[in-house]
Design a protein around this nucleic acid. Structure first.
Lengths: 135, 135
DNA sequence: GCATGTGTACTACTCGAACTAGTACACATG
DNA sequence: CATGTGTACTAGTTCGAGTAGTACACATGC
């Protein structure tokens, strides 16, 4: 299975699924129109309850990353259709994440150049990392 | 009081204290040698239990942000003395935070330039934001 | 129509982290 | 010795995450 999950992680399992799928889409590893496993199949693969998968799918649909069709399945959405209802709030949260990251970098003794390099490295990791990629 | 805390936030209260103090130090709003309130005084100001403040102080000491002297009080540490015992782990966590931030930015429809601008803005916010600063 | 597979909704329950509350202890200072 | 500091411990509450099981509504294909 291309996604793994750690039940003992402090990050909730459903959040790990959300992050994993968002990452796979951003990396191009999942493409618009691709079908995701059913909540039950996915739950068996990850050895978790199907309600946890359902919760992740609901969050992903709110984020406009996937589209759910009752009775048929869930599919990766085409990017940039319509933005999620709370974009502004999400952007604000992202701002705060970056602010806290700078503060943390300061206390870890990282100088500005190092941290900016890390920032760009993270961008490259976000698109295509994880080893296998379309070349 | 220069720090406030929201007991209904999903982020734990002790974590809010940690972030707040780290931010105040990084912004220069708290300087090395400055004394922090006692756990009990701070707890009264924030209307929380003193054990919660103590937990925050312990985390801040592990991060080498403050120094605790039993019987005397807690003080802002001088920067760059000795690094925390788990720097590598913290840096790795920071890497992952940035990677997830890029993924989130992608799904919010932010283009690279916008996100890099946001990154630099966050740096400026981290040192000196919050309105009042030493000019 | 009916069986099957899809996501959804609901209840009941377990588990662990966060937090409260209260108390006791060890150390430094005056 | 009194006071103020951080620390440690127990007991209990609260809440979110997750499990388990079931039932429902919709789409598809036989």
């Amino acid at each position: 299975m291309w996604l793994q999950v750690d039940p003992r992680s402090p990050t909730p399992v459903y959040q790990q699924i959300v992050d994993g799928i968002k990452g796979a889409v951003a990396a191009g590893w999942l493409k618009p129109g691709d079908r995701l496993p059913s909540v039950r199949d996915f739950a068996v693969s990850l050895a978790i309850n199907h309600n946890t998968v359902a919760k992740a799918y609901q969050e992903l649909e709110r984020s406009r990353v996937i589209e759910v069709v009752r009775g048929r399945g869930t599919f990766v959405a085409s990017p940039g259709q319509r933005p999620p209802p709370d974009v502004e709030e999400r952007i604000e949260k992202l701002r705060d994440t970056l602010r806290l990251a700078w503060i943390e970098a300061y206390h870890l003794g990282l100088v500005e150049d190092e941290f900016e390099r890390m920032f760009r490295q993270a961008r490259d990791d976000a698109r295509g990392g994880e080893g296998k990629e379309g070349l």
